[in-house]
């Protein structure tokens, strides 16, 4: 009940924010109508892959294995936490991020240093194919961790921090942190990467009207807790 309520409140917020954070000008920019239609899919399962031709699928798989893998690892399983894991990440989220890198609207330091260049020449169709490619890859299950950190992180993820007006993360990132549509999968992600992103939201280096306010009152300790919990999730 509670969850439905927060969805109802947050959904329009997300919709406007995602629209606001969308690409400003680009040749193949979808119309606002198309974007709005895409947004209604947020709560649904991944969109069908029918539009993606076999040639595009092959091109995406090749690009992923021969270039993206040099940082993001084979099959989207990166080793260093400088590089986020992409296996199982939501297709729509990947597409949105690649476009944000290409359009230089995702501005946190490592986004600029690494991904602005990588995404600069990607076309909309290959971006879409890359999104689907990574979504269908199976994330490797992490070793289970059981610690006070994890328990505290789980509490934050599932219930939020009412005293600080922080909503439960699972309302948007879903119960197993598996993500949906434009809400990224967080399960199994490198904890250090998650903390870096939370800090970037907090200090405004990564602009996002939904996540920025949520992170304002977060302490470093709370970031560590929730990130440790998230990395431990399969």
């Amino acid at each position: 009940m509670n969850r439905l309520f927060s969805m109802a409140v947050l959904f329009p917020l997300v919709t406007t924010s995602v629209l606001a954070a969308g690409p400003e000008t680009h040749e193949n920019q979808p119309t606002t109508g198309e974007q709005a239609a895409a947004l209604t899919k947020i709560q649904q399962t991944a969109p069908s892959e029918e539009q993606i031709t076999p040639e595009l699928k092959d091109a995406a798989a090749k690009l992923a294995a021969q270039e993206c893998a040099l940082c993001h690892g084979r099959s989207g399983q990166s080793i260093s936490p400088t590089f986020p894991r992409l296996a199982g990440q939501r297709a729509e989220y990947i597409e949105a991020q690649l476009k944000a890198f290409r359009d230089a609207t995702r501005k946190d330091p490592d986004a600029q240093a690494y991904m602005w260049g990588m995404a600069s020449q990607l076309t909309d169709p290959i971006i879409e194919a890359l999104g689907h490619y990574y979504e269908q890859l199976k994330p490797v299950a992490p070793n289970p961790v059981d610690s006070r950190q994890v328990a505290a992180g789980k509490e934050i993820f599932e219930r939020g921090i009412p005293a600080q007006n922080v909503p439960a993360c699972q309302t948007c990132h879903m119960a197993q942190a598996q993500g949906a549509g434009l809400f990224p999968r967080l399960a199994g992600q490198h904890a250090a990467y998650l903390v870096k992103q939370m800090n970037s939201f907090k200090n405004g280096l990564r602009v996002n009207p939904v996540m920025q306010p949520i992170m304002q009152s977060f302490t470093s300790e709370q970031m560590e807790q929730v990130a440790t919990y998230l990395e431990s999730l399969p």
Partner: peptide, 23 residues
Amino acid sequence: QTGMACAACHTVFPELTPFGRQF
């Protein structure tokens, strides 16, 4: 050429990072 900052390939030049080696 890559559109990436030096930091992608170098810790501090000329020392290479793992991606620099791949490149």
